[in-house]
Design a protein around this nucleic acid. Structure first.
Lengths: 301, 301
DNA sequence: TCAACGTTTTGTCCAGGACAAAATGAACAA
DNA sequence: TTGTTCATTTTGTCCTGGACAAAACGTTGA
């Protein structure tokens, strides 16, 4: 007597919130204002979102995270929307490894995923591992989510395993008393710690001393730790989700509060376009630019 | 020109949702029905929850997770409520180490936390580490959250670091071809993976072969993997949050689907009280009972 | 190029109603 | 006692449609 497997016409609103990261309130107000999404209704009048609409919501979410506004997105037709999204995909070909790793992720084989990452790390060394595998893999994982090939939970599993591997490697390479002294963290409302860890993984092998404050450090704490701890550089990481304008404002404030002797770096591709130039603030679009920045910092000294 | 630091009369509803894990809808309907919480209002008529009310909400959440119902909780006075909560606290004295580790957590010193855990692991060995430090520490971390001493984010940081350490240790100890073969996982809607990892950490040193499917495995997949992979035991983990009745129902179903030759274990203290006895299903109240269960499994063979 | 200012867009909050799923308790049978 | 069935209560989540502040935009003027 098997439970009859009901093929659902769609997912309820709570599931869509989990899948897309869009709040229920937002989903409802979009429906009211823009006429999309337009979910089916179950017998009780509750929304049921068909898979196609959820897929499109993921695309819209992605564009909004890139700074585009709903008004424009909803006004655009399918072709235009595809074009906007297409840019990212064609940036560069993903390494062959990526597909295998994502397959492991889809199968929830976390242990094998970890081993595979670890192996690649040992084969190529920490820095090449980060630049040549992890950076493109991050993009591929994001795209896989966009296509609905992996869930949010699996994405989370990925960052977790990757952090394990990176932390272990960074820890083993750490040298006490190295120079320069770099303070890594993120601002409040920014939870993404992966960027920090990747930067650390590139910097520590170059003989830099890195201290990570973790995520969500208030401005005041950054300033007091940086000055009190005799740091040479403060490096902040911003995920694509972080509103660029807010980032710029906070960075200007932070630059004002820090003594001029301490350098300030800001990582995050989306910050670099149309960014206001600030004296004594260096933007890093790609992860490997931290190495260039480090070299530049060392040159005059 | 410092930004004037406004001392807030309370937190907005979205912040309370993050802090307590109670949905905005739930907070509002409780206010309507039970008259609690009764937040202040800002100039715009929006709710502002004072810290005392948030503290009480945390307590209420804790009791609900333990299976108590809102009706009873809201009817009780302060003394009764404190009594209900007190039971847990007095269960046993926490190891001295705990306080230091929680202090590291509060300071967001994730790297030091990891090192401290790693050291303790090396000093006492994996099994004692899990039973004597991790298990009580988990409880202490939960209580610290209850007291508002650590945030949800910090709690998350804790599990992350702990998982790093445990995974590394388990990985190093793994022996191919060991017996018995144990399949570890959780049911859908259950995200807590820490219990699985702790069980694995106790079982692997005993020469068991453990495979973890991660969290949220559908019943059918558990059955097919267990039978197809020639497993001897299926072990499921349930966090306190998981509704006990649902767990029992699913376990009965799973027991029905699995061949009798495969043992079934269910870990989670709250499942054990008033649990329906099911032939061929073993409940594990405390983490260290997996060792007893393993011994018992081996005895007749 | 930049600053200032009015307008539009947009996410989140609110009230109060509704209902299904879960839990309880009562009645009854083994 | 133990277990089963069924009506009743409890409880979380969803609904509609309105409102508003903060953010983004675009225009003007230096």
């Amino acid at each position: 007597m098997n439970k009859t497997e009901i093929i659902p016409a769609g997912l309820p609103i709570a599931a869509v919130e989990r899948d897309t990261g869009l709040l229920k309130d937002t989903l409802r107000v979009w429906e009211r204002r823009y006429g999309f999404p337009q979910p089916l209704r179950d017998a009780n009048g509750e929304r049921l979102y068909p898979p196609e609409q959820i897929a499109r919501l993921r695309q819209i979410k992605r564009l909004i995270d890139q700074g585009m506004r709903p008004g424009k997105i909803f006004a655009a037709d399918d072709a235009t929307l595809g074009e906007w999204l297409g840019k990212e995909e064609s940036r560069q070909a993903a390494p062959a490894q990526c597909a295998e790793l994502i397959a492991l992720l889809q199968a929830q084989r976390s242990e094998e995923l970890r081993s595979a990452l670890q192996q690649n790390l040992l084969r190529h060394g920490l820095q090449r591992f980060v630049v040549e595998l992890v950076a493109p893999l991050n993009i591929e994982v994001g795209l896989a989510w966009l296509r609905g090939e992996i869930t949010v939970g699996e994405e989370h599993l990925y960052t977790e395993q990757l952090q394990n591997v990176l932390r272990g490697a960074v820890h083993a390479l750490r040298i006490p008393g190295a120079q320069p002294r770099i303070l890594l963290t993120t601002l409040p409302d920014e939870l993404h710690s992966l960027g920090l860890l990747m930067a650390e993984a590139l910097l520590v092998p170059e003989g830099a001393h890195c201290t990570s404050l973790g995520t969500q450090t208030p401005l005041g704490d950054i300033v007091s730790t940086a000055t009190g701890g005799a740091f040479d550089i403060v490096a902040l990481s911003f995920s694509p989700h972080y509103p660029a304008r807010q980032a710029w404002a906070h960075l200007a404030e932070l630059r004002r509060l820090l003594p001029a002797s301490i350098a300030l770096w800001a990582g995050g591709r989306h910050l670099c376009e149309r960014a206001p130039a600030i004296e004594g603030l260096r933007y890093l679009a790609e992860i490997d630019e931290v190495l260039i920045a480090l070299e530049a910092w060392r040159a005059p000294a």
